[in-house]
Design a binder for these strands. Structure first.
Lengths: 219, 219
DNA sequence: TGTACATCAGTGAACGCGCGTTCACTGATGTAC
DNA sequence: TGTACATCAGTGAACGCGCGTTCACTGATGTAC
């Protein structure tokens, strides 16, 4: 039942976007009176939280499946698969993507339950980086020296064990860039400049590989 | 008067965010009855449009001032100034930034009046690239060959005259990355991983310079 | 097998709210003669 | 200088709307004896 409610909310999210979401409309969709909903969810905010968690899980699953299909030692291909999976998921679920990575919903602040599901997708990238580094497949970028400690040491050791901080920084940059690319495309900021979005995205992913120090894609 | 209304709307935007915006509240702020507002603006959507235009202009001005203070031949410094100006503006006007670069406001689609002011900020970057390229200060990236024509040829020739497409692509990538970085930081996606946001951002900008082919910063 | 009771998902009316927009109006100001 | 008129910014009441949430309730189901 709770799942049916969440599903109905997902439907509405897909159509109207996050702030078109209304408890009453969800109730209608699920065939209940608006008050009955409150037997299953404590408040609208809780419903939003559930949708956010669902979103991170769904995105994480999609990325995991795509990346899992690549042979383990093909680090570059794994990174490309992750990037493409994020973009594909965003295109398939634009409002859901916007809920996760667009402007924060006003008056709503995500509770901690949200954090753990959100790490799934980043964990996948971290894996690739750590394994590639351990395998000696990362050309360490020599041009930029970082002397300060910019990152949270706990996170560094937990998620990116054994990874030089320079590379970790580049990884986070590449990660931010990936979502910047996807958001720009999805929110219409590339309209008029880029003609072939697919090709532009793939080319950009290639450049991001260079940024991280991953070998260029084989083909 | 019209300006007073926009200013009041900007105030409200800064406090409540874009979808807390209400014509009635703006009227209250400006000391009018809610109906009187309609002597000056045709609808709420028109008000939103005005805010978006204001935003692009304000951001453009901020970037222009910051970048204008750098000696013309210091291309890298000019790029850094642009990047930092964007970030600074976003931090000073988070809701306004979210209105421009976060999720599109549902049910609202930006009219063409919006396009021209939006180009200002990109024109500044284009300038830097074109001038740097003309001055021979761009190390052309040799590793990635692009055979297709990904970009809109009109835009390429109008905004980026004489610039090789490989570099234009990298420019757009860097631009998207910049906003990805700013959004990630602003929307809280770096919380927990990055300890020193200022340093991380500057370091990332340095990497983006490499991506474009700009010489590393002098100091 | 039958009765008394607890549980609990679901109901419908109601609360108080703020919203965007319209409409007939007022009343001050400026202009034409 | 005085009068008639047009202009137009601003008013206040009203429209119809959908919202999140509460509350006393019903009625079916399951359990204990």
């Amino acid at each position: 039942m709770r799942q049916a409610i969440i599903d109905a909310a997902l439907d509405q999210l897909a159509v109207t976007g996050a702030d078109g979401l209304s408890v009453r409309e969800v109730a209608r969709k699920v065939g209940m009176s608006s008050s009955a909903i409150y037997r299953h969810i404590p408040s609208k905010d809780a419903l939003l939280t559930a949708l956010i968690i669902e979103g991170y899980e769904s995105l994480g699953r999609a990325a995991e499946v795509a990346e899992g299909a690549i042979p383990r030692p093909a680090f570059t291909a794994r990174f490309l698969a992750l990037g493409r999976a994020v973009r594909r998921w965003a295109q398939a679920n634009p409002h859901h993507y916007a809920l996760l990575f667009g402007s924060p919903v006003p008056g709503y602040s995500a509770p901690e339950d949200t954090i753990e599901p959100a790490t799934q997708i980043t964990r996948l990238l971290s894996q690739v980086l750590v394994e590639a580094s351990a395998a000696g497949s990362l050309r360490a970028p020599d041009e930029l020296q970082v002397d300060t400690s910019l990152l949270e040491p706990d996170v560094l050791s937990a998620f990116l064990p054994g990874l030089p901080e320079e590379i970790a920084i580049r990884g986070i940059l590449a990660w931010s860039s990936l979502f910047g690319l996807v958001s720009f495309e999805l929110f219409g900021h590339l309209v008029g400049s880029v003609a072939d979005n697919d090709a532009f995205f793939d080319t950009s992913l290639g450049v991001l590989c260079q940024v991280i120090g991953l070998e260029a894609a084989p083909a």
